[in-house]
Amino acid sequence: MTDRILVNGVSAPRFSVPLELRAVAITLALGALGYTLFPDDLAFLTRLISITLLVLSLDLVTGYCGVATLGHAAIYGVSAYVVGNACLAGHSDPLLLLLVGAVAGALMGLVSGALVTRFRGLPQLVLSIAVGQLIAALANKLSSVTGGSDGLSGISPGRLFGIYAFDMYGRTGYVFSVAVLMVVFVVLLRIVHSPFGLLCQAIKDDSLRARMIGARVYPRLVLMYGLSGVVGGIGGALNAINTGVVGLDSIGFERSAEALVMLVLGGAGSLWGALIGSIVFQVFEHYVSAANPFHWMTMVGALLIAVVLFAPKGLVSLGGLLAGRATYVMRRRP
């Protein structure tokens, strides 16, 4: 029966300590691998991690709760702006800024969740876009707070733990980001395998049935939106801390849509899927856009079509299949 669990690694039925350890090991290994592959482009990697947090955040509501949203970058962007302003106002401790981002994201998540999860299906999707556009428009108009189309700049965070300065090579920023991603990922693994996480998946599967076992669907979805906001907010905070600037691109529709594409690519409803999808998409984009600046979007499109055709449940399902096959082969051996 264990092999079945592996085949469906997408939603491993039981939580166990090794899962957490595996997550720690894998994120650290990926961090080291990134450092080895792109030693001169750590800025790219820190950006990648920040966006990965947005995709993980989206996975919580879309993959685990079945909420259709194309406005998730609002959470990310609002948090980035709040963190940027906090830093410009003199609160420059990176950990404090991370906390500020998490709180801003949580509030933004609760508000958008309270609106968006009132509805289902297309009205929900449209409402999520409307909320996203509204926030983006506000960011553009409120230039005294956001810098308008010029964006916020000159955000310079203080030393990490009062010791490690954010250097121009981005080493501190990178290590900091990998550590944050690792912690967030492990905590999220616990959450999605908790009773609350299971209930959210149950609501996604059949919300009437969930009501019929006594679940209060709406408050659960809003709570998950709030948690998702924390994660997206941390992503936004990392963006502001690492790049030193916050622009309208971090809040707009395109960012939301791109996050959804990454999630679908990797596999919605699995944290591993969100991780894989955002890494593959961004690394692919990085290489291909450098190699062919004119047609890279075409290539990304082709990749997506291939994935949707051959692995509609995302890249993570391929991994699951491989693992299942390997177990099967090993078990067949005498």
């Binding site: 039981r14 939580f15 616990r190 908790s194 009773p195 609350f196 659960r220």
Partner: peptide, 10 residues
């Protein structure tokens, strides 16, 4: 127990 967001449930 379903408001429990951290424990190992089953």
């Amino acid at each position: 127990l379903t408001s429990n967001i951290f424990s190992s449930p089953i």
